[in-house]
């Protein structure tokens, strides 16, 4: 087991290195310079500033310098927020995004799984149709439409919750709900499909034949087996949500990292683009590792196969 994890960690470092390299060169294809007043400055004036930030060097030299700094854990300083360290900016902005993403995932998974279970248990009943309908709706309507409606009705019309801004826990409720819609839909659909499949399999039929009641079968035997495909999807989705979403953050004026990332790309703020990409990549790889380990916990057959 330990050997397996160490092996995976080594792969992780290699993957990160490849991602960093690819991103670095792709980034250099972005048009223009990071200068914010490039529309006003003459070529010579621009050159003086670019020189200061080492952007006049040949790209391979820049790449080498960046990788050397990266290896020492230095992500550099931002161009758009002069002199502010990339690490500081990411730390400031990741908090709200992680909080919202986490809350949305918890709510989304619980509600989604319940809906899926209900659908599976009352297959082809009215409950099934209702929850399937809701799931399709949740998956197909863009989250900003929900967000806009929630903001207007709950925030402005009824005044139950704050319209937007980021000043306390009650400010997280509406954005959390808006973000949770998608995981709810995904979780419900997967849960339903998997549960239906599992419930039709031989060992469930055997369990039922032995006299275990329906609820017992569902929770003890069905749920566990249906979880495997679910966490495969939900893991990466969680990373996606926790690293911020431009639209929801803008609508609720949340100081998160999603908006920051998009802006950095528009402004050619190379160090921020690199820093954020690496962070997201790391989280993805990490969560995939966690999921692989979880498979073993949930399903002993996978543990055995890997133990060879």
């Amino acid at each position: 087991m330990t050997r397996y994890i160490i092996q995976r960690l080594i792969y992780m470092v290699i993957t990160m290195f490849l991602i960093a390299t690819l991103t670095f060169f792709l980034m250099k294809f972005l048009p223009g310079t990071p200068l914010s007043a490039a529309d006003k400055l003459s070529d010579e004036q621009q050159a003086v500033v670019l020189e200061k930030y080492g952007l006049n060097d040949p790209v391979p030299v820049q790449y080498f310098n960046y990788m050397v700094n990266l290896a020492q854990g230095d992500l550099g300083i931002s161009f758009q927020f002069d002199n502010r360290e990339v690490t500081t900016i990411i730390m400031e902005r990741i908090g709200p995004s992680v909080q919202l993403g986490f809350q949305a995932m918890i709510i989304g998974t619980i509600i989604g799984m319940l809906l899926g279970l209900v659908s599976a248990i009352y297959h082809n009943g009215i409950m099934d149709y209702t929850s399937t309908f809701l799931a399709v709706l949740g998956q197909s309507i863009p989250s900003f439409v929900f967000a806009g409606l929630l903001q207007f009705y709950i925030g402005v019309k009824f005044g139950w919750l704050p319209v937007a801004l980021w000043e306390g826990w009650e400010y997280t409720i509406l954005p959390t709900i808006s973000l949770a819609i998608f995981p709810i839909a995904i979780a419900a659909r997967f849960m339903r499909t998997e549960m239906l499949e599992v419930m039709g399999s031989d060992y469930i039929v055997t369990a039922r034949a032995k006299g275990v009641n329906k609820v017992g079968v569902v929770f003890k035997h069905g749920l566990r087996n249906a979880l495997i495909p679910l966490i495969t999807v939900l893991g990466p989705l969680a990373v996606g949500l926790m690293t911020g979403t431009l639209v929801i953050e803008n609508i609720f004026a949340v100081p998160g990292i999603g908006e920051q990332f998009v802006k950095a790309i528009n402004m050619n703020d190379f160090p921020i683009i690199m820093g954020t990409t690496l962070l997201i990549a790391f989280l993805f790889i990490f969560i995939i590792l966690v999921i692989d380990l979880l498979y073993g916990v949930i399903d002993p057959r996978i543990r055995l196969a890997e133990g060879e």
Partner: peptide
């Protein structure tokens, strides 16, 4: 406060 979306500012 930093608010980027016009509709949000109008609601506020």
């Amino acid at each position: 406060k930093v608010v980027k979306e016009t509709s949000t500012a109008v609601n506020l």
